[in-house]
């Protein structure tokens, strides 16, 4: 009952490692940088370049996740009257100007994170509306995974309302946004090779062949730098090899 090492469960953002391609991309450096940006920034990169993977590894360094991967139906309603999660860092009575954000949370314990996943413009707009109504406070950071799923007015609204309420906002997007860019992710042959070295078991037949940059380079170009698609392509290669080996072992 051997598993394909490139099955989805092994290559989803929660399982795969974030491999920094430069010193600036180290998780601790990114966390500090984000704090300097008052928890308002965007992770920018194309499909399958590691944006969600970075989120999975960066978020635990930033604060406490109150709601993870919320969609409209899964986001719990929290009335506005509810006291802030961390009373020690309660917001001042008036809020709204940029200078007030200078009291932004400084420690992991102080920041409550609401992690939203955007799926379809209509549902995303409702999700954002509900979040803004009940969850946007100082000491809170909203993560919007899939910012481009929002309609243009909702995108602007998310930025303006979180700024007015003093909440942080971390986006993943395929293009640059109005927020400062925290990091730009990009799939590369070197990154693919490093990840595959971690994913492929040492006793896998033709492991060296699968890790060969000459083989990975055209595949990555074929998928426009999308590492997820590259893994899916190699999944098929491994399945075919497995079937061939199986047929050779016990002919039907």
């Amino acid at each position: 009952m051997k598993s394909n090492p490139l099955a989805t469960r092994f290559v989803t953002p929660g399982h795969i490692q974030w491999l920094a391609q430069s010193d600036e991309q180290r998780l601790d450096r990114l966390a500090t940088h984000l704090q300097h940006l008052r928890y308002r920034a965007a992770i920018v990169g194309p499909h399958g370049s590691g944006k969600s993977t970075l989120l999975e590894h960066l978020v635990p360094l930033l604060g406490t996740v109150l709601v993870k991967h919320a969609t409209y139906s899964s986001l719990p309603l929290q009335p506005l009257e509810t006291p802030p999660l961390f009373p020690s860092a309660a917001p001042p009575e008036s809020c709204g100007s940029e200078s007030e954000v200078s009291t932004a949370p400084q420690t992991v314990d102080q920041l409550g994170i609401i992690w939203l996943q955007m799926r379809g413009q209509w549902a995303s707009a409702r999700l954002l509306h509900r979040t803004m109504q009940h969850w946007a406070h100082r000491n809170r950071m909203l993560i919007i995974d899939g910012y481009e799923q929002l309609a243009y007015p909702a995108r602007g609204l998310a930025i303006v309302v979180t700024r007015l309420t003093g909440a942080g906002l971390l986006l993943t997007s395929h293009r640059r946004t109005w927020l400062p860019t925290l990091v730009e992710t990009q799939g590369s042959v070197a990154l693919a090779q490093q990840l595959l070295e971690q994913l492929l078991p040492l006793d896998l037949p033709d492991r060296a062949g699968l890790l060969d940059p000459k083989r990975l380079s055209p595949l990555l170009s074929k998928h426009n730098g999308n590492l997820r698609e590259l893994f899916m392509d190699l999944y098929d290669t491994l399945e075919t090899a497995c079937e061939t080996n199986s047929l050779q072992r016990k002919p039907r």
């Binding site: 989805t8 989803t12 953002p13 499909h47 399958g48 944006k51 969600s52 996943q117 955007m118 995974d145 899939g146 481009e148 799923q149 993943t172 395929h174 997820r228 899916m232």
Partner: peptide, 11 residues
């Protein structure tokens, strides 16, 4: 069907 963030692929 694989769904991750904005990416949905069906095979």
């Amino acid at each position: 069907t694989y769904q991750q963030g904005t990416d949905v692929r069906t095979e």
